[in-house]
Design a protein around this nucleic acid. Structure first.
Length: 117
DNA sequence: CATATGACACTAT
DNA sequence: AATAGTGCCATAT
């Protein structure tokens, strides 16, 4: 069972559009808990949705047993590095690139790809 | 209640 | 630029 904190994290994640990313720190800030960025990562790591549940558009895809539309792979570190991923960082990178997000020197240009602010 | 853990962030080297 | 140490916070045990 997801805790309230975890659910609040997932709710914010639903708002991130394809082609954009958000940082763990920004999510924490949006929750009004600017220092909980680390806990945000924990919540995502335990997320009950599969990594393939990348977006609403993926619903219907034969490979996905969609249970939601959380784009967990769109959450990266505040310094632009991709960060971790429960199903492999390599996979996370591929998914991001597939959405048009460029990763150079292992980093994403937040100026260009960060959603909101 | 006390410790340990980790998809992080910052600062100081 | 790269590394190491410190701080943080929700959960698990």
């Amino acid at each position: 069972m997801p805790t309230d904190f975890e659910k609040s994290v997932y709710e914010i994640l639903k708002k991130i559009p394809k082609g954009k990313v958000i940082t763990y720190k920004a999510i924490a800030r949006k929750l009004g808990k600017k220092s909980s960025y680390r806990a945000v990562g924990n919540a995502l790591n335990k997320n009950p949705y599969g990594y393939f549940a990348i977006s609403s558009e993926a619903i219907g895809n034969r490979r996905s047993s969609i249970r939601g539309d959380l784009a967990c792979h769109r959450v990266i570190k505040s310094n632009g590095e991709v960060g971790g991923f429960a199903h492999g960082t390599k996979r996370k990178i591929k998914m991001l690139e597939k959405e048009g997000i460029k990763i150079e020197e292992g980093k994403v240009d937040l100026k260009k790809f960060e959603f909101d602010l």
